[in-house]
């Protein structure tokens, strides 16, 4: 089962490697990972997705919390949350039919064409991971040249928030 874990940690060298190391040394894979400073630039917000059962996830949340550099850890998939991922796709558009098809798909998925050449479109799309997967399936036949996904960012719904 897919799990989204969100962490506030000190924006210091080595902090990220400790987080990643916890997973690597147990043989667990991190499927996606995004990290950037928050409005307070001494703090980083990290969101990662991994696969695991309830017990493994609980243990990982506790282990992450135990790291000296982490300030707060929350298991987002445990509760109502919003997740969002950004994707850039470069697609081969050989002829007018292909251009029309891609434009239509981009409109249906509420994306944007952010760059073009005579033979390519670059599409930007944001949303949950399933939506991005569906877009890729929809345009696969036309000819995908490159896919870049940011990994999941997540935030809990309602009044709850993660802050120092």
């Amino acid at each position: 089962m897919k799990r989204i874990i969100s962490i506030l940690l000190e924006n210091e060298s080595g902090a990220l490697s400790r987080v990643v190391g916890l997973f690597a040394q147990r043989g667990y894979n991190i499927d996606t990972l995004t990290v950037a400073p928050t409005d307070d630039d001494t703090l980083s917000r990290l969101t990662l997705t991994t696969q695991g059962d309830d017990q493994m996830t609980e243990q990982m949340v506790k282990q992450l919390h135990k790291l000296i550099d982490t300030i707060k850890v929350v298991h987002l998939t445990e509760d109502l949350h919003i997740e969002c991922e950004l994707m850039l796709v470069k697609i081969k558009v050989a002829d007018n039919d292909a251009r029309a098809e891609i434009s239509r798909s981009v409109e249906i998925f509420r994306g944007h064409i952010v760059d073009m050449t005579a033979s390519t479109y670059t599409v930007q799309l944001a949303g949950d991971s399933d939506k991005l997967d569906a877009f890729i399936d929809a345009v696969r036949e036309v000819g995908i040249m490159e896919v870049v996904r940011s990994g999941v960012s997540g935030i809990s719904r309602g009044d709850k928030f993660l802050r120092v």
């Binding site: 060298s13 080595g14 490697s17 400790r18 190391g21 040394q25 000296i68």
Partner: peptide, 14 residues
């Protein structure tokens, strides 16, 4: 050293 010792320390500093 920080890298080599990472999984076997409570914490480390450079």
């Amino acid at each position: 050293m920080v890298g080599v010792s990472r999984p076997i320390v409570k914490h480390s500093f450079l």
